[in-house]
């Protein structure tokens, strides 16, 4: 035991964010089952849509080239949903109580969860793209197209993770946080991810057309396999979602009950 009495000085927001990013990445690696699911689920989903449904859906074009961009985006949602549980666990267990009594910005623990989710999802995306190539995905994108597609994917992962982080802040328990997340996971099914909007009934087509996932998928699709994209609309959607999430988090975080 030391007898020095120089009190702790605390650390900057950047340093505490760094500490928490490392912690959340360690969580991702240690939680083997979670990591396996984060990678296996997207791959299974893709195999289901290409191999199982692919034959029936196949139109004039190659369905695999059509569906892979949609799968990539759907996967980002899967991988990000665990952020809600991690954030909720921090908020409802004693950890946050301790962080809030220490001389640094306690909300940086959420930054750790968000960044770790982005890293986890990019790894899952890489695996999905690898498997897609193995089963016949043949995009004709150049380097610029790939960079644009990955840029939008990263931005979308960040946006959807931010939403899940807010869900984690609001939910009363990690279990509830897990449940709320499912609503967001349905968005890609109501978009042009798996089938063109023109094939949907009239009453649902506008919903599919004007929700954020459709322009983002179309942008990724155009960057990788050609077609019409909406890069500006996609970026604005992602930045808008991140902004709203930040405002909600900044409002909610100080108001979460301390016990």
């Amino acid at each position: 035991m030391t007898t020095t009495t120089t009190p702790a000085t605390g650390v900057s927001t950047l340093s505490s964010s760094g500490v928490f990013i490392r912690r959340s990445l360690l969580h991702s690696i240690r939680d083997g089952e979670g990591l396996l699911m984060a990678i296996a689920l997207p791959v299974m989903l893709m195999l289901m849509f290409t191999v199982v449904f692919g034959g029936a859906i196949q139109g004039d074009g190659r369905y695999i080239d059509y569906v892979v961009p949609g799968i990539i985006l759907t996967c980002a949602g899967f991988g990000a949903s665990s952020t809600a549980v991690s954030v909720s666990r921090d908020m409802t267990a004693g950890a946050m109580l301790r962080y809030r009594t220490m001389p640094f910005v306690a909300s940086t623990s959420i930054v750790g969860h968000v960044i770790a989710s982005v890293v986890r999802n990019l790894v899952a995306t890489a695996v999905v793209i690898g498997v897609a190539f193995a089963i016949g995905f043949r995009p004709d994108a150049d380097l610029g197209g790939w960079i644009a597609a990955l840029g939008i994917v990263t931005l979308w992962i960040l946006a959807v993770t931010s939403v899940f982080a807010v869900i984690g802040l609001i939910a009363g328990s990690p279990e509830a946080a897990n449940g709320y997340g499912f609503i967001i996971l349905f968005l890609p099914y109501l978009s042009s991810a798996f089938v063109p909007i023109e094939t949907m009934p009239d009453w649902i087509a506008p919903v599919a057309e004007y929700q954020p996932v459709t322009p983002i998928i179309e942008t990724i699709r155009s960057a990788l396999v050609g077609g019409e994209g909406q890069p500006l609309v996609s970026i604005l959607w992602c930045l808008g979602i991140i902004l709203v999430a930040l405002v909600l988090a900044a409002w909610r975080f100080p108001r979460t009950p301390v016990r």
Binding site: R23, A93, G94, A95, L97
Partner: peptide
């Protein structure tokens, strides 16, 4: 402060828990 609910990170080791809090305290 040590509160009534334990504040430890379940997935980290005891040593990692302490080192992390030490880093957060500068």
């Amino acid at each position: 402060v040590t509160g009534q609910a334990t504040s430890l990170d379940e997935l980290l080791t005891g040593r990692e828990n302490l080192a992390m809090l030490g880093k957060l305290l500068g």
